[in-house]
């Protein structure tokens, strides 16, 4: 049998990522300001998209922080327990629907909104629905004002 040398895989460390640190600092600043702001985690593998949405939400009365992959998003959710999760669907690695299912298992009361501009998302949502998980979906592109209105209609429990 031919020998096969497995590639080196970097071991997971317990060190929090820069994304995680930034989210934690953001949440802390919001809490320190004393204002009652619903917190929201924005997840999108397109960094600039996630950051601009988070910035817009921050100046619109939310306490928003971003993540660029589902694994980090799970980690942030577990630690910071935001009121909302706003996630892209089609992402490398874990997709947004699987992220949403995991989050719903951890925090059934969290408001979750998925947003996507990709085809094939309906199938993923249907699979989730068959497993007993239903999520709202909005289509990209959506004007920020409409997105904010939509989020505000989803009152966090």
């Amino acid at each position: 049998m031919l020998e096969y040398s497995w590639p080196e895989i970097s071991q997971a460390t317990d060190e929090p990522s820069q994304t995680f640190i930034a989210a934690r600092e953001r949440k802390a600043r919001c809490e320190a300001s004393g204002a009652e702001r619903p917190s929201i985690l924005v997840v999108d593998d397109e960094v600039i998209l996630a950051d601009t949405v988070a910035e817009i939400l921050n100046i619109s009365g939310f306490c928003a922080f971003s993540a660029y992959d589902a694994s980090t998003a799970l980690q942030i959710t577990e630690e910071l327990h935001p009121d909302y999760l706003l996630s892209d669907v089609v992402m490398p690695g874990m997709n947004g629907v699987d992220l949403a299912i995991n989050v719903r298992k951890m925090f059934p009361e969290m408001s979750i909104l998925l947003f996507s501009g990709q085809a094939g998302v309906a199938d993923l949502l249907e699979v989730a629905r068959e497993q007993g998980y239903a999520f709202d979906l909005v289509e990209k592109p959506m004007h920020p004002v409409r997105l904010i209105e939509r989020l505000k209609r989803m009152r966090p429990a």
């Binding site: 817009i56 501009g117 592109p141 004007h143 920020p144």
Partner: peptide
């Protein structure tokens, strides 16, 4: 068209900001 949606969302956000 699907590939255009994300950049279009980003541009919309940037123009809004």
């Amino acid at each position: 068209t699907h590939q255009i949606n994300s950049p279009l969302e980003t541009i919309t956000n940037l123009v809004y900001l």
